[in-house]
Simulated scan of single mutants.
Amino acid sequence: MTEQNLADDDWSTALSEQAEQESTQQYQKAESGIFKDLTDNDVKSSTHPNIDFILDIPLHITVELGRTKILIKNLLQLTQGSIIELDGLAGEPLDVLVNGCLIAHGEVVVVNDQFGIRLCDIVSPADRINKLNR
């Protein structure tokens, strides 16, 4: 082999070793940086979640006495004093909906000439999720 071929072989060997070292270092940085962040920081944040940023989001709360279906021709015949029959029974708990999702049942109360609702039963998170899937 000539001196030039030996120099080329040495040069290519050195370049391949350098490339191996750089890829190993990048892998180690990624492994120590990414996986460390995922395991250490996320575990800490999930045990002490900071939910302050959602506290000022407005929600619509609706209290529902009952529901019914009515034909348009019957709706057009309604006048002052007409009675619409609902599917809810008298004395039955009312549905409390937040943004259209049932979260509780309650009963009507009057406080200082204003209506309110006393929550009697909170719907479990599992039941709320099941109703979302329907």
Rank of each mutant, 00 (worst) to 15 (best):
2 T>W: 01
2 T>N: 15
3 E>I: 07
4 Q>L: 11
6 L>Y: 09
6 L>V: 09
7 A>R: 03
13 T>M: 10
14 A>E: 09
15 L>E: 09
15 L>W: 09
17 E>G: 06
19 A>K: 06
20 E>N: 14
22 E>T: 04
22 E>W: 02
23 S>L: 08
26 Q>Y: 02
27 Y>W: 09
28 Q>D: 13
29 K>C: 01
30 A>V: 01
33 G>L: 07
37 D>W: 13
39 T>C: 02
42 D>P: 02
42 D>M: 12
44 K>D: 10
45 S>P: 01
45 S>Y: 11
47 T>F: 15
48 H>P: 00
49 P>D: 09
50 N>D: 15
52 D>Q: 07
52 D>I: 03
54 I>A: 15
55 L>Y: 03
57 I>F: 12
57 I>Q: 04
59 L>R: 07
60 H>D: 06
60 H>A: 05
61 I>R: 06
61 I>Q: 09
62 T>F: 08
64 E>Y: 00
67 R>K: 14
67 R>I: 07
69 K>W: 08
72 I>Y: 09
78 L>R: 05
80 Q>K: 13
80 Q>Y: 06
89 L>T: 09
90 A>D: 12
91 G>I: 00
91 G>W: 05
92 E>N: 08
93 P>F: 03
95 D>A: 15
96 V>T: 03
98 V>Y: 08
98 V>W: 01
99 N>P: 06
100 G>Y: 08
100 G>H: 10
102 L>P: 01
105 H>K: 14
106 G>T: 00
108 V>T: 14
108 V>Y: 03
110 V>T: 12
111 V>T: 01
115 F>S: 07
115 F>Y: 15
116 G>F: 10
116 G>D: 06
118 R>K: 12
119 L>E: 02
120 C>H: 04
122 I>Y: 01
128 R>E: 11
129 I>T: 14
130 N>G: 10
134 R>C: 07
